[in-house]
């Protein structure tokens, strides 16, 4: 099961990666978000969060739709005011349809 989502929020300070208090600095805000994602419920160390152009891109695979919802909620909260684009899918749970002959 996959679910792509694009959430867009307009911003005044996206891309600000230099100077100013850390709450206005996109790099530090992303760093703080990653710390929060690791510590809180989603425990998402495998999701990538990167400043790209004038927006922030969140990519990765999460175990369940609930985790995906929690991830989006946390990101939207932590990066409020920034444009965020998501490419986050839910891990597949189907059995494989063929094996690999390793040797």
């Amino acid at each position: 099961m996959t679910g792509h989502d694009t959430a867009r929020q307009h911003t005044q300070n996206a891309g600000n990666t230099q100077g100013g208090p850390s709450e206005q600095n996109t790099e530090y805000r992303i760093a703080h978000l990653r710390e929060r994602l690791a510590a809180e419920e989603p425990a998402e160390l495998g999701v990538r969060v990167e400043a790209r152009g004038a927006c922030v891109v969140v990519t990765g695979t999460v175990p369940t739709t609930h985790c995906r919802e929690e991830l989006l909620r946390t990101v939207n909260e932590e990066l409020a005011g920034l444009t965020v684009r998501y490419d986050v899918i839910v891990a597949g749970t189907a059995a494989p349809d063929h094996p690999e002959e390793v040797s």
Binding site: T61, G92, A94, P99
Partner: peptide, 11 residues
């Protein structure tokens, strides 16, 4: 997240 399935099988 890499294999995108519940498991893979190797012979």
């Amino acid at each position: 997240p890499v294999i995108r399935r519940a498991f893979n099988v190797y012979h």
